[in-house]
Simulated assay, not measured.
Amino acid sequence: MREIVLDTETTGFEPSEGHRIVEIGAVELMNHMPTGRTYHQYINPERPMPVEAFEVHGLGDEFLRDKPVFRAIGSEFLAFIGEARLVIHNAAFDMKFLNFELKRVGLPALPFDRALDTLALARQRFPGAPASLDALCRRFGVDNSTREKHGALLDSEILAEVYLELVGGRQPDFGLARLDSSRSGGEAGEWRPRPRPTPLPSRITEEEAAAHAAFVAKLGDGAIWLKRG
């Protein structure tokens, strides 16, 4: 199963008010394991960066001026995510901005049901507990000490670690579901042990066998070892 852990940074909170995406970061997971493939892109928002947004992200107008606009990178972004499930913290926010940008340049929008919201997942697992990314890092012992400013790729990498803890650790199924059916003799996940072609030799000595027989004889006719032959 391929998943993309994704984060965006924006100039504000509402695309309908003219705010735009300034950064996208994404991390690829395959069967709940990082593959090392990432996507990272700064984007020229084609508008001034508000002071409050600069303070959060550390991205200013001068830095973003020579970066590509969304129209130039939209198709590349869609090619990277492919048909994978999207793992996003507070998915409604990022999906709202991504679909606004995609529709604006004539590219297909992303169905909302493709997104798994880790914020909702955390609230379901830990009702009433803080569910911010920083709070989940503290809960799971994920190192976020380098997170001085919000950055899309760094936040995606941190979220990937948090997500894997939320679903049960780095290998929640211990890899059993991914066994090769050609080796298991059936469909993946249906593996069954087979008898050994040659039984292992007994490790019990003659003295141990005799001592056991004498012990069982003292237990009488009702001994379980006698019933089982």
Rank of each mutant, 00 (worst) to 15 (best):
A122C: 07
R123W: 02
R123E: 08
R123L: 02
Q124C: 02
Q124I: 02
Q124Y: 12
R125P: 01
R125K: 15
R125M: 11
R125C: 05
R125G: 10
F126T: 05
F126Y: 15
F126I: 06
P127N: 12
P127D: 12
G128M: 07
G128Y: 02
A129D: 07
A129M: 09
P130D: 01
P130L: 04
P130C: 06
P130R: 00
A131M: 01
A131W: 01
S132P: 10
L133S: 09
L133I: 15
D134M: 02
D134K: 14
D134G: 12
D134A: 13
D134C: 01
D134I: 06
L136E: 08
L136K: 04
C137V: 01
C137R: 02
R138P: 00
R139I: 00
R139A: 01
F140W: 08
F140Y: 15
F140K: 05
F140E: 04
F140G: 09
G141W: 12
G141M: 08
G141H: 04
G141R: 06
V142L: 03
V142E: 06
V142K: 08
V142P: 05
V142N: 08
V142I: 15
V142A: 06
D143S: 09
D143A: 12
N144R: 11
N144A: 14
S145N: 14
S145T: 15
S145V: 01
S145C: 07
T146D: 14
T146L: 14
T146S: 14
R147S: 05
K149C: 09
H150D: 10
H150E: 11
H150T: 06
H150I: 07
G151T: 11
A152R: 06
A152E: 05
A152V: 08
L154M: 15
L154D: 09
L154Q: 15
L154I: 13
D155K: 13
